[in-house]
Write a protein that binds this DNA or RNA. Structure first.
Length: 775
DNA sequence: GTAGGGTTAG
């Protein structure tokens, strides 16, 4: 900027929009300093508004501090807005109080910012005081102020979860954390305890309890306060939610009261009400408002549509969702980022991931949320590899993952049992300070448990400051999967003692625990407690867990009666658990009866054919077994081959029975033979009763020795350092002989061997298995 | 002054 005349300078100051960059603003600042009175309040105020418009927080703050007391009203309003815009809500409110204390009345320019700060700090008391102030000062006709008020009341309706997350790491702002202790240190001394309220005593029309505010700062001291997040998607029947839920009908009324009193309403007003309704599950009311928009001569915009789409995601109504999609396209909003991520999410929740994918590909701009929507969409639909692929692509596209990305992607690691990837993600989570987020911590607990490390899962669980129903359920289920039934039960009891009401999923977890330990009576008492005391209708999962438990415990007839009396029609898979129990307990007669039930409900249930045929074989009824296998072949069904895999040096090695294709096959074979010799010396006798082929005894043994899990384990032994834990995953259940063999192996090579079959974990150590041979 | 994405379940 060249040497500028006083007149030009003043004009520039007046027309602050002309200053577009930081360097222009700084040059102007310098010129004023050189040529004008550097202490002129009016110049500084105008310059301040230029700085705040450019979102220059530090410069604005410094400039504000150069103002002589009392600061002019205009300067106060600029700095308050600046604090709010930069996420410094406590500072914003502090300045607001200070402004009032210095005798400056707030007006319609400052209330929207102040209300926004109250909203994001979740301070209803303060917000209500501000509302009182608005009414008394007659600002209650202002459109912007009223919109901000409605927004505040709408957000306070879904207070519970937000309050929780406020202290437990939730960040939707992309990292704008406020460290309150930093703020507190900056509050001028004269506004210390007590003095503030007396200095406020003279303020007309404003009634805030300043001591409350000071106390609040003290309570928050040292804590990192983060922005609240949406409460959407919570299931109405989620009992834990109801327990802590603090939905305030009064706030809902307040939204309406404000809306009805408004002399003029614009699209923002309508959108605010619509979002408020949708966020609180009042879907029909929200949609009614959308339909009424037309009567007010308004048209839905991207805000409206992206708020309405989640409704159809929750309703799983893809037809309605598509109508909105069509509307968006017709009105030129088809590629809006916000609508885009809502569409991706809506299609995914309606199990139409291909459509999500299409929307994603057509988006010209993709932000962290669009990426996360497609990642979560894949994972929720069981496309774990796809989800991981998108996650990697996101990193390549230089989009920094956010906290939500991790709670979306970790379940994929959990389902794929890829411990090394899970650990890498955990490292990233710690480095970025996301590890105090409840969602992420719960996902980590689940991931570690499912990847075989119940110890790490428990460690993370114990380190969590506060547990919600999901984290409890994750650790209970994890303990159950690892056969630690008593841990699972005591955790469940501890959870109840802490006042958390178990929901339907938590009962699935505790029943699973009972099932793995054969605790029949305990399970019945939980089942009855659930239906009678908690009023939770048993779902298929509960029935399946009970049926499994009874069957395993040998109470076959009881299981049969139980399944037959189910409220929900039993599925093939529920009957299958009993069929498997019939195999274990060698009840051929009941097995046939159960198999008939399965074939009636689910004629293509391959598992049932296989089990029944094995039951026949074990009973030496080779012809019946053959008959079933032929009918399977005629139906075009193929038995799933048993497969085991192991991660070595971040690489997955998969084996099928008798597999000779692995590059180290000869080494594996040699080691296997050596091992077998030592096992036999220790007393291992192969048990061929589970070899369901009508072949010679020697050949049966040979078939056993090359079961996939043994190949994987031996490969693990020869390719990892002495003492390393071996973790093997198998797609089917471990056979009895392998179970015995692995016990011997664990003792001989002195290693912990963790095997996850399709049902649970087995930890083999010192010749014993954690399942106590009950599985 | 208004908007989109997340964790547990055979």
């Amino acid at each position: 900027m060249e040497m500028t005349s006083t007149k030009t300078l003043v004009n520039l100051l007046k027309n602050s929009k002309a200053i577009r960059t930081e360097s222009q603003a700084k040059q102007l600042h310098a010129q004023i300093f050189k040529t004008q009175d550097p202490n002129s309040s009016s110049h500084i105020s105008k310059l301040l508004s230029i700085y705040t418009n450019l979102h220059l927080l530090r410069d604005s703050h410094n400039l504000f501090n150069t103002l002589k007391s009392p600061a002019p009203p205009f300067a106060w309003k600029s700095i308050i807005r600046c604090f709010t815009d930069n996420g410094l809500f406590v500072q914003s409110l502090t300045s607001f109080v200070q402004m009032m204390a210095s005798g400056v009345y707030p007006d319609h320019n400052v209330f929207p910012s102040v209300l926004k700060s109250c909203t994001l700090l979740m301070d209803l008391r303060f917000g209500e005081s501000v509302h009182g102030c608005i009414v008394r000062l007659g600002v209650d006709l202002d459109l912007y102020t009223n919109n901000a008020l409605m927004n505040m009341y709408a957000k306070f309706q879904s207070l519970d979860r937000n309050m929780y997350d406020r202290f437990h790491g939730c960040d939707v702002s992309g990292g704008s954390k406020i460290y309150v202790h930093e703020v507190l240190d900056k509050i001028p001394k004269q506004y210390g305890n007590g003095e503030l309220s007396s200095s406020l005593a003279g303020c007309n029309g404003f009634n805030v309890n300043a001591n409350d505010l000071i106390q609040k700062f003290k309570n928050l001291k040292g804590k990192s306060v983060q922005l609240p997040h949406s409460n959407r998607g919570r299931q109405a029947d989620d009992h834990s939610y109801r327990r802590t839920s603090n939905v305030r009908p009064l706030e809902s009324d307040s939204v309406w009261k404000v809306f009805e009193m408004m002399p003029i309403r614009d699209l923002v007003s309508w959108n605010t009400v619509i979002v408020g309704l949708a966020r609180n599950g009042l879907y029909e009311e929200a949609l009614k408002m959308v339909r009424e928009l037309g009567n007010a001569n308004l048209k839905p915009d991207s805000f409206t549509l992206s708020s309405v789409l989640p409704i159809f995601a929750d309703y799983v109504n893809v037809i309605k969702g598509k109508e909105i999609h069509g509307y968006a396209i017709r009105h030129g909003l088809g590629t809006d980022v916000y609508i885009g991520s809502s569409l991706i999410d809506m299609y995914a929740k309606c199990t139409r991931v291909e459509d999500s994918h299409r929307v994603f590909c057509l988006l010209p701009i993709r932000d962290a949320i669009s990426w996360n929507s497609i990642i979560a969409g894949c994972v929720q639909n069981g496309l774990f590899d796809e989800g991981l692929k998108f996650f990697r692509q996101m990193l390549i596209a230089k989009i920094k993952p956010r906290h939500v990305s991790f709670s979306s992607i970790l379940p994929a690691c959990a389902h794929l049992t890829t411990l090394h990837l899970g650990k890498q993600l955990h490292g990233y989570i710690i480095r970025n300070g996301f590890d105090d987020n409840v969602f992420i911590a719960s996902s980590l607990v689940d991931m570690y448990a499912k990847c075989g490390s119940i110890r790490l899962a428990r460690h993370i669980f114990d380190k969590m400051e506060l547990h919600d129903i999901v984290s409890w359920t994750a650790i209970i289920m994890g303990s159950a999967l690892h056969g630690h039934a008593h841990d699972a039960i005591s955790l469940f009891e501890q959870m109840e003692k802490e006042g958390l009401k178990p929901n339907s999923v938590a009962f699935v977890a505790v029943l699973t625990a009972c099932s793995h330990a054969g605790l029949v009576d305990k399970a019945w008492s939980y089942f009855n407690n659930m239906t009678q005391d908690h009023g939770i209708a048993p779902s298929l999962e509960h029935y399946a867990a009970m049926a499994d438990l009874l069957g395993r415990a040998g109470k076959l007839e009881e299981a049969y009666e139980f399944i037959s009396s189910m409220d929900v029609g039993p599925t093939g898979s529920v009957w299958s658990t009993l069929l498997f129990a019939c195999k274990v307990h060698k009840n051929v007669q009941l097995a046939e009866k159960v198999a008939d039930k399965i074939f009636m409900i689910d004629p293509d249930n391959m598992g049932a054919y296989v089990i029944l045929s094995n039951i026949y074989s074990a009973d030496r009824r080779w012809k019946d077994a053959a008959r079933l296998r032929i009918s399977m072949r005629n139906k075009g069904m193929k038995k799933t081959p048993a497969c085991s895999w192991i991660e070595v040096k971040s690489k997955v090695h998969a084996f099928v029975a008798g597999d000779e294709s692995h590059p180290y096959y000869h080494k594996i074979n040699g080691a296997l033979k050596d091992l077998l010799e030592r096992m036999e010396q220790e007393g291992y006798v192969p048990d061929t009763k589970e070899v369901f082929h009508d072949v010679e005894e020697e050949q049966k043994k040979h078939l056993l020795y090359y079961h996939s899990e043994r190949l994987a384990i031996v490969f693990g032994i020869i390719s990892t350092p002495v003492g390393t834990t071996i973790r093997v995953i198998k797609n089917l259940r471990v056979c009895e002989d392998c179970h015995t063999a692995i016990k011997f192996i664990s003792k001989i090579v002195d290693r912990e061997i963790v095997v996850r079959d399709n049902n649970r974990f087995h930890h083999f150590k010192d010749g014993k298995c954690s399942c106590g041979d009950y599985w």
